[in-house]
Nucleic acid binder design. Structure first.
Lengths: 208, 208
DNA sequence: GTCTATAAAGGGATAGAC
DNA sequence: GTCTATCCCTTTATAGAC
């Protein structure tokens, strides 16, 4: 008996994943409100009633995806912090990870979900709070220490760190958006983005 | 009789403008599909029936705003082309205009409308065609000649011009999006963005 | 010109058959 | 577990009163 229920649980989880994957695609391209449950069902190849068998509401599905997106973005910054090297090398590593993730679409779509959740007033407050709940976990805030360390070391120009971080993430968000409009668009090299951090003359910038 | 009808026409136009202005605000913040006609009416301070007296549908209103946004973005690039100076100076002037426009909200909101129209599958094809209709009028395409001229002059690094243009507009779009999430966010100086175009050593970059 | 009342349609969510 | 039929509310759009 326990064996069988475990197996069922696995099947159940697989179905949930299947629906979440389909939902990610249509949410990212149409927006939360414009997405109908039947769009998700069609993308997943099953009936709309079955979606309700696995989830309580459209909002719950969207909410799960926002959580997933927020977690993976925090995770990458923490990995960058743990990366061995100078602050600028940490930033380069992180930038490369993010730009590479744009090649495969799942990460790009998760990025777009986060952008939607944080920019649209049509998103329920409970969902928005998943992102704004802990200000100290925002990408900008998490990146400030790295930037400050780089400035102390003289690797990074001495502009306002918040402005630098905002500009950096504007880049990243803008590229994610671009990617959905134009899937084959050229993705720049990490070093091109990092130029905003570097003094023009006699910098410690180098190619690997 | 002609006097009176002219006056009426002016009042009519003023009302239309009032509704369009209200629509811009709610469309930008909620997205086209999530915006109800009653949201627009409430923002404009009138009844929802009156909105239908001046416009045929929600789509028509959104469509007019997309046209307006597309025109003003083309216009600024043409002005940059006409600007007296080197290619890099043209780009600096254009960047300053765009960043300054982010201070006042109307331009930022128009930017967001364009981003929505080009990224969301929920936007009717007829509206999307207002932006993709003439590929040669896209911001990226219009900016390529300036970048190429700058490369020939040695002012701009010799990377793929399309990649440079894509990266530049990713920046701009990302900043517009940031502005709506965080209205008081610091807007970088034009020179910070332009660093992506410039060789690190011995560049012609200068402060004014 | 402006409003309120109402028709018509669409989509979220549920019930119940298989 | 999965699907179809249905309920019910929201929203678009129109009609008609003032």
């Amino acid at each position: 008996m326990p064996r069988k229920s475990e197996l069922n649980q696995e099947l159940r989880d697989a179905r949930k994943e299947q629906i979440l994957k389909a939902a990610l695609i249509v949410f990212a391209r149409r927006g939360m409100v414009a997405t109908k449950i039947s769009d998700i069902a069609k993308e997943a190849g099953l009936s709309h009633g079955l979606v309700y068998h696995y989830f309580n509401s459209k909002e719950e599905i969207f909410s799960l995806l926002v959580k997933k997106a927020a977690n993976s973005s925090i995770e990458i910054i923490q990995q960058a912090n743990a990366f061995k090297g100078t602050p600028l090398e940490k930033l380069r590593w992180m930038t490369e990870q993010i730009l590479n993730s744009f090649v495969d679409s799942e990460h790009t779509l998760l990025f777009l979900i986060m952008i939607q959740a944080s920019t649209s007033d049509a998103i329920p407050a409970e969902v928005k709070e998943l992102l704004t709940g802990d200000q100290s976990l925002s990408p900008v805030m998490c990146t400030l220490p790295i930037i400050a360390a780089g400035q102390e070391k003289g690797e990074i120009i001495s502009a306002n760190p918040v402005t630098l971080a905002v500009t950096y993430y504007a880049f990243i968000q803008g590229l994610a958006i671009n990617k959905i409009q134009w899937p084959e668009c050229p993705i720049p090299d990490a070093n091109l983005l990092l130029k905003i951090f570097i003094n023009e003359k006699g910098s410690s910038y180098h190619h690997e």
